[in-house]
Amino acid sequence: PPPPPGAVLPPSLPPYFVKGSIIQLADGELKRVEDLKTEDFIQSAEISNDLKIDSSTVERIEGSHTSPNFAVVQFSVGEHRAQVSVEVLVEYPFFVFGQGWSSCCPDRTTQILELPCTKLSVGDVCISLTLKNLK
């Protein structure tokens, strides 16, 4: 099935989630992916001209109908609580405010990416992006 409207995620596991990957923040500072903190994302978004951090609360997590390797995560996004569903690999990591990397299957994330990860749960507030000029 096509991705749900409003959700733009890579179909597979991108290389930058592998432990040790070098990430450049908006101010030019370089950090390893496993060392990123909530403040790094917030400060980078503040510097950015067109991107804004939104809070996306996990409302539901269920197995995908298409493959056991995938999960469907439903988020409530931003102040208008827009409902957005994404279908992701169960090991796909999301960054939870004040907590760090979390996925539907943290054991697989740690195994495949070596990225320290906790279990993504309903009620977790993830960092997501929107365009600043969107009302």
Binding site: A7, L9, I22, Q24, F41, L134, K135
Partner: peptide, 19 residues
């Protein structure tokens, strides 16, 4: 060594404005 921009790590969840 590849360097990735910070925003590539964050899902882009843009709520659709259907109205």
């Amino acid at each position: 060594v590849p360097v990735f921009p910070w925003h590539s790590l964050v899902p882009f969840l843009a709520p659709t404005q259907s109205d």
